[in-house]
Measured scan of single mutants.
Amino acid sequence: MKTQEELTEIVRDHFSDMGEIATLYVQVYESSLESLVGGVIFEDGRHYTFVYENEDLVYE
């Protein structure tokens, strides 16, 4: 089982391919040991929310 830090790094690596990240945040109250819920804001102003669970990243 991966730690929350490892899950965060996986998500950061994925989004870094889309541009320069200004902020990546995790909603700790919605996340667990198996899933990571949060959002990412890019330097150009784009903002996505995401759920990473079971090695699957869903964002909008």
Score class of each variant (00 low, 15 high):
residue 29 Y to A: 06
residue 55 E to M: 13
residue 16 S to D: 07
residue 36 L to K: 00
residue 54 N to D: 08
residue 23 T to Y: 15
residue 18 M to S: 04
residue 52 Y to E: 00
residue 38 G to W: 03
residue 42 F to E: 00
residue 10 I to G: 03
residue 16 S to F: 06
residue 59 Y to P: 03
residue 60 E to Q: 14
residue 14 H to P: 01
residue 3 T to K: 06
residue 22 A to M: 10
residue 57 L to Q: 01
residue 50 F to G: 00
residue 9 E to A: 14
residue 22 A to F: 08
residue 55 E to K: 15
residue 24 L to H: 01
residue 37 V to Q: 10
residue 52 Y to D: 00
residue 50 F to L: 01
residue 43 E to Y: 10
residue 7 L to I: 12
residue 35 S to M: 13
residue 14 H to D: 03
residue 29 Y to E: 06
residue 30 E to I: 15
residue 15 F to T: 01
residue 31 S to A: 14
residue 21 I to A: 01
residue 39 G to N: 07
residue 54 N to K: 15
residue 10 I to C: 06
residue 22 A to N: 11
residue 18 M to I: 08
residue 12 R to Y: 10
residue 14 H to L: 14
residue 27 Q to T: 11
residue 30 E to R: 08
residue 4 Q to W: 07
residue 20 E to I: 14
residue 44 D to R: 01
residue 51 V to E: 05
residue 26 V to K: 02
residue 16 S to Y: 07
residue 32 S to D: 11
residue 58 V to W: 13
residue 52 Y to H: 02
residue 12 R to E: 04
residue 25 Y to M: 04
residue 39 G to W: 13
residue 46 R to G: 04
residue 6 E to P: 03
residue 59 Y to G: 03
residue 3 T to S: 12
residue 46 R to N: 05
residue 41 I to N: 03
residue 32 S to L: 11
residue 6 E to Q: 09
residue 38 G to E: 01
residue 53 E to G: 08
residue 46 R to L: 05
residue 45 G to F: 04
residue 42 F to T: 02
residue 13 D to A: 15
residue 51 V to R: 13
residue 10 I to D: 05
residue 21 I to R: 01
residue 47 H to N: 04
residue 49 T to M: 09
residue 8 T to D: 03
residue 22 A to G: 07
residue 24 L to Q: 01
residue 43 E to R: 15
residue 38 G to P: 00
residue 15 F to R: 01
residue 31 S to R: 08
residue 50 F to Y: 06
residue 14 H to T: 11
residue 41 I to P: 00
residue 57 L to E: 01
residue 11 V to F: 03
residue 44 D to E: 02
residue 39 G to H: 12
residue 30 E to M: 10
residue 47 H to P: 00
residue 23 T to C: 13
residue 55 E to W: 09
residue 35 S to L: 15
residue 60 E to R: 15
residue 31 S to G: 11
residue 36 L to P: 02
residue 51 V to Y: 13
residue 26 V to L: 06
residue 21 I to S: 01
residue 22 A to I: 13
residue 38 G to L: 03
residue 44 D to M: 02
residue 55 E to G: 11
residue 56 D to E: 13
residue 13 D to I: 14
residue 28 V to P: 06
residue 1 M to T: 14
residue 20 E to L: 12
residue 48 Y to S: 00
residue 55 E to C: 08
residue 36 L to C: 04
residue 35 S to V: 13
residue 42 F to S: 00
residue 7 L to E: 02
residue 14 H to A: 13
residue 39 G to F: 13
residue 30 E to Y: 06
residue 19 G to W: 03
residue 14 H to C: 08
residue 36 L to S: 01
residue 27 Q to K: 14
residue 27 Q to C: 14
residue 9 E to D: 12
residue 36 L to G: 01
residue 39 G to Y: 13
residue 25 Y to H: 04
residue 55 E to A: 11
residue 8 T to G: 05
residue 57 L to P: 02
residue 9 E to T: 12
residue 12 R to A: 06
residue 31 S to F: 07
residue 54 N to V: 05
residue 52 Y to A: 03
residue 23 T to I: 12
residue 38 G to F: 03
residue 58 V to C: 13
residue 23 T to W: 11
residue 10 I to T: 08
residue 36 L to M: 09
residue 5 E to L: 13
residue 29 Y to I: 06
residue 31 S to M: 10
residue 29 Y to S: 07
residue 47 H to M: 07
residue 25 Y to N: 04
residue 47 H to A: 07
residue 47 H to G: 04
residue 1 M to K: 13
residue 58 V to D: 07
residue 50 F to I: 01
residue 15 F to C: 03
residue 1 M to F: 12
residue 28 V to N: 10
residue 20 E to V: 15
residue 28 V to T: 15
residue 20 E to H: 14
residue 51 V to W: 15
residue 14 H to I: 15
residue 53 E to Q: 13
residue 42 F to Y: 05
residue 15 F to E: 01
residue 5 E to M: 09
residue 29 Y to L: 07
residue 54 N to P: 05
residue 6 E to W: 07
residue 22 A to R: 15
residue 43 E to N: 12
residue 45 G to R: 04
residue 35 S to R: 15
residue 50 F to H: 00
residue 60 E to A: 13
residue 50 F to M: 00
residue 25 Y to D: 04
residue 60 E to C: 12
residue 57 L to M: 06
residue 47 H to S: 06
residue 39 G to P: 00
residue 35 S to D: 03
residue 39 G to M: 10
residue 43 E to Q: 12
residue 13 D to N: 13
residue 53 E to D: 08
residue 40 V to P: 00
residue 60 E to G: 09
residue 14 H to K: 13
residue 46 R to S: 08
residue 8 T to W: 08
residue 9 E to V: 09
residue 37 V to R: 13
residue 42 F to D: 00
residue 23 T to K: 12
residue 51 V to D: 03
residue 3 T to D: 05
residue 36 L to V: 06
residue 49 T to D: 05
residue 49 T to I: 13
residue 46 R to E: 05
residue 18 M to R: 04
residue 5 E to H: 11
residue 19 G to H: 03
residue 57 L to A: 02
residue 20 E to A: 13
residue 21 I to G: 02
residue 49 T to N: 08
residue 52 Y to F: 09
residue 60 E to P: 03
residue 19 G to M: 02
residue 37 V to G: 06
residue 55 E to N: 14
residue 15 F to M: 06
residue 10 I to K: 09
residue 23 T to A: 13
residue 16 S to R: 12
residue 47 H to W: 11
residue 56 D to A: 15
residue 41 I to W: 07
residue 6 E to A: 09
residue 57 L to H: 02
residue 60 E to T: 15
residue 58 V to T: 13
residue 11 V to T: 03
residue 7 L to H: 03
residue 18 M to T: 03
residue 38 G to T: 02
residue 42 F to I: 02
residue 44 D to T: 03
residue 27 Q to G: 08
residue 12 R to L: 09
residue 49 T to W: 07
residue 23 T to S: 10
residue 19 G to Y: 03
residue 19 G to E: 01
residue 23 T to Q: 12
residue 28 V to Q: 14
residue 3 T to F: 04
residue 39 G to R: 08
residue 55 E to P: 06
residue 54 N to M: 10
residue 36 L to F: 07
residue 12 R to N: 05
residue 5 E to I: 09
residue 18 M to G: 03
residue 7 L to G: 02
residue 42 F to K: 00
residue 57 L to F: 07
residue 56 D to Y: 15
residue 38 G to Y: 02
residue 48 Y to E: 01
residue 14 H to F: 15
residue 10 I to H: 07
residue 48 Y to G: 01
residue 19 G to L: 03
residue 33 L to M: 13
residue 53 E to C: 10
residue 33 L to C: 09
residue 36 L to H: 01
residue 47 H to Y: 07
residue 56 D to R: 15
residue 6 E to G: 05
residue 19 G to V: 02
residue 43 E to D: 09
residue 38 G to S: 00
residue 18 M to D: 03
residue 38 G to A: 01
residue 45 G to T: 03
residue 1 M to Y: 13
residue 4 Q to E: 09
residue 20 E to M: 12
residue 35 S to G: 06
residue 58 V to R: 15
residue 48 Y to K: 02
residue 38 G to D: 01
residue 57 L to K: 02
residue 48 Y to V: 05
residue 14 H to S: 08
residue 26 V to Q: 02
residue 48 Y to M: 07
residue 2 K to L: 09
residue 9 E to H: 11
residue 49 T to H: 10
residue 40 V to T: 03
residue 35 S to I: 14
